[in-house]
């Protein structure tokens, strides 16, 4: 049987570490550097809303396709960077820099 290779932590590790400091339940989350949504999909089901951004268009397309397949409606995946977001707007409860420096 082929082993699925991942260069990232097993599912749940990052969320457990995050939740030592803040619960993501019913929160409005801004995720910066979401990539293909690997981490986003791990917590979106408990969040109220997620704005997930990444400069890589292909990754965002992949994330959006997965979102459609999973039938998740509270994530807004967008191509972009934090610098590109308007300075003002609806405030978030949590800003998550996910493996982005």
């Amino acid at each position: 049987m082929a082993t699925e290779i991942s260069a990232y932590p097993r599912e749940g590790l990052e969320r457990r570490l995050i939740e030592r400091f803040v619960s993501l339940r019913r929160k409005h989350v801004l995720e910066i550097g979401c990539g293909d949504g690997r981490l986003t999909f791990q917590y979106a089901s408990v969040a109220t809303s997620v704005l997930a951004i990444d400069p890589d268009r292909l990754s965002i397309e992949e994330a959006t396709e997965q979102q459609r397949r999973r039938g998740i409606h509270n994530i807004d995946f967008r191509v972009g960077s934090i610098e590109g977001l308007p300075e003002r707007g609806a405030p978030f409860d949590v800003a998550l820099f996910s493996w982005s420096l």
Partner: peptide, 20 residues
């Protein structure tokens, strides 16, 4: 600059998480 921008979009008492 990115962290300052994130600060501007967070509620007072909001949390910024950096994983790297």
């Amino acid at each position: 600059h990115a962290l300052r921008r994130a600060a501007g979009r967070l509620h007072a008492g909001g949390t910024l998480i950096s994983i790297r």
